[in-house]
Amino acid sequence: MKNETINRNGTVAALSEKEAERLLVNPQKLVLWLLIVASVMLFAAFTSAYIVRRGEGNWQIFDLPPMFMYTTIFIALSSITMQWAFISAKKDQLRMQKIALFLTLGLGVAFMIGQWVGWEQLVANNVHLVGNPSESFVYVISGLHLFHMIGGVAFVLIVLIKTLNHGIHSKKMSTIGLCKTYWHFLGAMWIYLYIFLLLNR
């Protein structure tokens, strides 16, 4: 085997067949999963802080905005459409793949807008960022998730563009695979956070 070189776009390229065979997992996938673990720890920190603080008393109880129920449905649906897009890509069904991706993007954006509306509903209910920590936490926790969504939506957009350029198909599944994983993570995390806030108010 002659000189190999490393690709500039971040994957280990040009390993020999033998070397490539020994890879246990797609390296990019592993990296993504590890970053997901880190993100889980971040949310774990906030949810534990929430529980610890609540245990100390002086805790304001209020209803979560009704919009959050809808956004939860949006994001759950978007995971379904994302999965559909992935399967379509694997089967080389380009038309369905495009539709599914558009839907996913739309639902993702709807989620983000919905979260914002949810905040407005909170303010209307006199629940502000500045005030009792029970109120502040809801903003910070949902806000942090929203921040993660920005990356997710951007990723879906990239996948959509690549799809339109015929760059994603059964032989080139890695990008959409990673996007799917991240997207499901965002959905699962929101559902966890929503249920957590509902139960632990």
Binding site: E4, A13, S174
Partner: peptide
């Protein structure tokens, strides 16, 4: 595991 998940820029055939 195939090379599918690796970037497919073709450097496999470089010599020297």
């Amino acid at each position: 595991m195939s090379n599918q998940h690796l970037n497919n820029e073709d450097h496999n055939n470089h010599e020297g």
